[in-house]
């Protein structure tokens, strides 16, 4: 691509635009210094000339906001990791307690199998407590 041009305005459109721009001084009383637009154009081109390539934005690590954000992110990550580790620890401990409880419950059931059933206890209880109350 060797030729290019900003899309052309037709003459009528261009004249209307010039008239409209003049409305700023005619209606609003706004003015600019002589040759302002030529001088300003050169100043802008000089500024851009020193830039050479359009820049992609670099984030400076010396910026306090950036440093604060990074520090906050690290702290958050650290807290989440610790929390997850603790949560894991609690869960495993809870599992152990449940296992022990289950074992003890099973032991009671097993032990009860070896206790002899006897009617004497019931008879004694009826004699001493229930009959006395009558």
């Amino acid at each position: 691509m060797d030729t290019f041009n900003y899309p052309e305005q037709d003459k009528k459109e261009g004249a209307l635009e010039t008239q409209r721009l003049k409305m700023h001084s005619k209606e609003l009383g706004l003015e600019v210094p002589e040759n302002y637009f030529e001088i300003s154009k050169q100043e802008i081109l000089n500024k851009i000339g020193t830039e050479k390539e359009p820049k992609t934005k670099l984030i400076s690590l010396q910026n306090k906001k950036v440093l604060f954000s990074i520090a906050a992110s690290i702290a958050l990550l650290f807290t989440i990791t610790i929390f997850q580790m603790k949560e894991g620890l609690f869960k495993s401990q809870e599992k152990k307690v449940r296992k022990i409880a289950l074992l003890e419950e099973n032991n009671d059931l097993i032990n009860s199998l070896f206790v002899e059933d006897s009617d004497d206890f019931v008879e004694d209880y009826l004699n001493t407590k229930v009959l006395e109350d009558l």
Partner: peptide, 14 residues
């Protein structure tokens, strides 16, 4: 960019 300035500098200024 010079063409862009020619066309838009005054408009954007106002």
């Amino acid at each position: 960019f010079k063409q862009l300035l020619d066309r838009y500098q005054e408009r954007l200024y106002w």
